[in-house]
Amino acid sequence: MTLSVDVIKRGGQRQSEQFMREKLHTSIVATCLSVRVPTGQAESIAHSVCEAVIAWLQQHPEVTSQDIRIIATKHLRIQHPEAAYLYEQNRITI
C-alpha cells in the first residue's frame, strides 16, 4: 500500500520518496528477528506497528524518515521493548 506522503530522507541529501509500507514492514520484521522473536510474531508485530504509523501519517502529508522511525519505535516499544531499543539503535551503533 502506498500513501500519498512524501518522506524526506535523512540529512536531506537524497531525494524524497513516497511512503512504502512494505519497506517499514520489512525493517520491523528484520529488527524483531534480530532479537530472536519467532517469524510469525515478528510479522504480527510489524503489521500492527505499520497500521499505527499509517494512522499517524494520515495527518502528516510530509514527514522525514526520522519522524517515521520515532513513531514506529514508539509503537514497537509497546509490543516489544527490546526490539524497539534495537530499532532505535540501528543508526547510532557505529
Binding site: V29, T31, L33, N90, T93, I94
Partner: peptide, 18 residues
C-alpha cells in the same frame, strides 16, 4: 569498540535477513 559495533550490526542484518 568499533569492530564490536560493526560485528553487532553485521549480525543484526544477517539474522534480520533470515
Amino acid at each position: 569498540q568499533l569492530s564490536v559495533s560493526v560485528l553487532t550490526l553485521l549480525s543484526g542484518h544477517s539474522i534480520g535477513a533470515k
